[in-house]
Amino acid sequence: MPELSYSAGELHSVGTPLLWTVTIGGVLALLVLDFAVTHRPHRVSLKEALGWSAFYIALPLIFGAWVWSEFGSEQGVHFLTGYLVEKSLSVDNLFVFMLLLAAFAVPTELAQRVLLFGIVGALVLRSVFIALGAAALQTLDFAFLIFALILLFTAAKLLRDAFTGHEQSVDIGNMRSVRLLRRFMPVVHEYHGTKMVVRVNGRRALTPLALVVVAVFATDAVFAVDSVPAVYGITEDPYLVFATNAFALLGLRALYFVLHAALSRLVHLSYGLAVILAFIGVKLGLHWAHGVWEGVPLIPTAASLLVIIGVLTVVTITSLRATRNVVPGSKEVVTERR
């Protein structure tokens, strides 16, 4: 399979203005649908979560098949590989959301509203990074090298956090976003439904829901820095990069309730993500070097897809084996994950 190789100023995209308009319109329509579903706070049943998860998994598969038939197998493989990478990173994002929801003691009926705000924030931030990434690829010959270094640094940080257990704790009091909000407005201790601001003794005050939403937005920014360079390591097409991110994020609200117990059993996920990000970082570095020196090999996207599937399969199996005697969702699982 031939590998796309673009230099600065030669970036091409399958996304026509009409396709961009239809895709963005579809994403907005799905977000409106999600907000309508979560308008009345309620506990999400497993049946409801499974139904929505099946819907949001079917959508990218249908879209990927359409890309394959419309633009060829190469672009189809690029989309499916990029989607798998983004979905894997999103699952790790979900684990952080789970820690935040627990740390802020978010009521179960409000959890999906918090997750939905997180998804919207992630989409907005990643769209900004996608645009910046596309501009960098068009103007900077060493943009791929920068992306490679970002991913290698992130992979090293993931490994360090996995070994030290740093990722397992959330200290609300030390979060900069939370401290900043408390400087400007008082905060009440109890939740008031979906309200983020209430009046107490004639003064406006923030509810804990506002704090957790801001905290989720802050984590969105961190994950956007990692995820966008990762998918640019699969395809340089800004439209496909946006599509993979959108499809990976839209189903997170339902997926959270499906995987809530299982998430804590994926004790080796961070190691797998570190390997995947390091692999894509090396791929990007070779891509940059290929344009500078002759004879530097490239890693085909098909090979990348096999590596990513292999790594995820291995860490899932080893995680489940490591926690086979632990009740899902218990404190023992978190300890084992460390």
Rank of each mutant, 00 (worst) to 15 (best):
V44G: 06
R126D: 00
Y256A: 02
E74P: 01
A111S: 13
L211F: 13
I130T: 10
A210P: 14
V307I: 11
L181R: 00
F63E: 02
I62Y: 13
L50M: 14
E10H: 14
Q112P: 07
L305N: 05
V44A: 06
L320V: 02
T164M: 06
P300K: 07
I24E: 07
E3Y: 12
L116G: 04
F223W: 03
A29E: 06
R324Q: 01
R113I: 00
A302D: 13
A65N: 11
P229H: 01
A65G: 14
V212Y: 05
Q138W: 01
D34I: 01
E190L: 03
P229N: 01
M1L: 09
A254N: 11
D226L: 04
F55C: 09
M185S: 12
Y239H: 12
L151M: 15
V44F: 02
F104A: 01
R40A: 07
I299R: 06
G281T: 10
Y271N: 03
L255A: 11
G165W: 08
S90T: 11
L250M: 09
T194V: 15
V212K: 06
I62K: 07
I130G: 01
R253Q: 00
G82S: 09
F153W: 06
L263E: 09
V333T: 15
W68Y: 15
P238L: 02
V22G: 10
D220V: 07
L110Y: 07
A205K: 11
T318N: 01
V212G: 01
F184N: 14
G118V: 09
F97W: 07
I146D: 05
T244L: 06
A322Y: 12
G25W: 09
L151E: 10
T16V: 01
P238E: 04
M185C: 03
D34Y: 14
P2V: 05
S73W: 07
A289S: 08
V77M: 05
T313C: 02
W288D: 02
D220E: 13
G173M: 05
V32N: 06
R183P: 07
D237A: 04
S270E: 04
H166E: 08
T313I: 00
Y256V: 02
F142L: 09
V228T: 11
V222E: 10
G82F: 04
T323E: 10
